[in-house]
Amino acid sequence: MHRFDTSAKGVYLITVTPFTDGGALDLASTDRMVDFCLERGVTGLTILGIMGEATKLTAEEAKAFTRQVVQRAAGRVPIVVGVSSPGFAAMGELTRAVMDLGASGVMVAPPSTVRTDDQIAGYFDMVNETLGPVPWCLQDHPVATGVQMSPAVILRILKNSPHCVMLKHEDWPGLAKLSAIRAAGDKGEVRRVSILTGNGGGLFLPEELSRGADGAMTGFAWPEMMVDVVAAHAGGDVERAHDLFDAYLPLARYEQQAGIGLAVRKHLLHQRGAIASPFVRKPGPRLSAQDLADIDRLVRRQDKRLHELG
């Protein structure tokens, strides 16, 4: 099993959860999806996230899906599992289950019920008690949670959380926050942790890498975009990183539309052969004929631009 620690970098792809056309969990398609991601060079997988329809799964389905992903990955990359929950009994139970199945660590976001800095910090003190020595990722995603975490409170959490090894930075706008947290680590004000970014399929990825991010933890139907952009940036070819990113940006932007984004991603992954069905569990969107025409046009233009870039 790969370690999940503060040295994490690259692309931890947020995966979808495949279902059959009838809505059942599709474990055979899960294998296809894992293979698809690993073949495109991701350095980790993150499952049961917001775009993974985690809230639509039963507890047993969540465990079965985790087991399948871990077994298929066979130790080639770390597997991080979302275990966010307002209640600590459920969080602790799921964490113990997925770690026993071979997960590398877990990811936790604050519940919408915490608002002040003291409430947020107190919540994560209880997260530490619940998770014990399990390595975990702090997810800062105010668009989804409604919780605004300032740099000061994030640094406070990191100082109080010896087993928090990563910040998943998803605030928007958030470049100044990323810079402040990285600077604090560089100055020794707090231990350095991995920072992976998740903003809308990586919509600010090149800029975030320039601000000190170690990579990306998000989803997109073309995971190779993030892999290639991160690699080019790490290799010092920042202009190449921006050129590649720009080629994918129109489709990445389209995939981030509120309401239909997950359906777009699953449709594209189905088209690419990564999953057998584009089914989204209820409540979920359906794509119109106009949506599909838009997507086809964007894919054609993306292919053309990538060919031009070589």
Score class of each variant (00 low, 15 high):
3 R>M: 04
7 S>P: 02
11 V>K: 01
13 L>W: 05
14 I>A: 11
15 T>W: 01
16 V>E: 12
25 L>F: 12
27 L>I: 10
29 S>M: 12
33 M>L: 15
34 V>Y: 04
35 D>W: 04
38 L>S: 10
39 E>D: 15
40 R>M: 06
40 R>V: 07
43 T>M: 03
49 G>A: 05
58 T>V: 08
60 E>R: 09
65 F>K: 07
66 T>I: 08
67 R>W: 04
72 R>Q: 13
74 A>Y: 11
78 P>W: 01
80 V>K: 02
83 V>D: 00
84 S>H: 00
85 S>I: 05
86 P>A: 02
89 A>K: 12
96 R>Q: 14
103 A>V: 09
103 A>M: 05
110 P>A: 15
110 P>G: 08
112 S>Q: 08
117 D>R: 14
119 Q>S: 06
119 Q>Y: 03
125 D>R: 11
126 M>V: 09
127 V>R: 00
130 T>I: 10
130 T>W: 08
132 G>N: 09
133 P>K: 10
133 P>M: 08
135 P>C: 08
136 W>N: 00
136 W>S: 00
137 C>V: 15
137 C>R: 01
137 C>M: 15
137 C>Q: 09
140 D>C: 09
141 H>Q: 14
142 P>S: 07
161 S>I: 13
164 C>K: 00
171 D>K: 12
172 W>S: 11
176 A>H: 11
179 S>Y: 00
181 I>P: 14
182 R>F: 09
182 R>V: 14
183 A>R: 12
184 A>F: 13
185 G>M: 07
188 G>S: 01
192 R>P: 06
192 R>I: 06
197 T>K: 00
198 G>C: 09
199 N>D: 08
199 N>S: 10
201 G>L: 05
203 L>S: 14
203 L>W: 02
204 F>S: 12
210 S>G: 10
210 S>D: 06
210 S>L: 07
210 S>P: 09
212 G>Q: 01
214 D>T: 04
215 G>C: 09
215 G>Y: 01
217 M>F: 14
217 M>G: 03
218 T>F: 14
220 F>M: 12
222 W>D: 15
222 W>S: 11
229 V>S: 00
231 A>D: 07
232 A>K: 05
234 A>Y: 00
236 G>W: 11
237 D>S: 03
239 E>I: 11
243 D>W: 00
246 D>E: 10
247 A>Q: 02
248 Y>L: 03
253 R>H: 13
255 E>V: 13
255 E>F: 11
257 Q>C: 07
262 L>W: 03
263 A>S: 06
264 V>H: 03
265 R>M: 12
266 K>V: 03
268 L>V: 09
270 H>I: 02
270 H>F: 07
273 G>E: 03
275 I>L: 03
280 V>L: 05
291 D>K: 10
292 L>V: 06
296 D>P: 05
297 R>P: 01
299 V>I: 14
302 Q>P: 02
305 R>M: 06
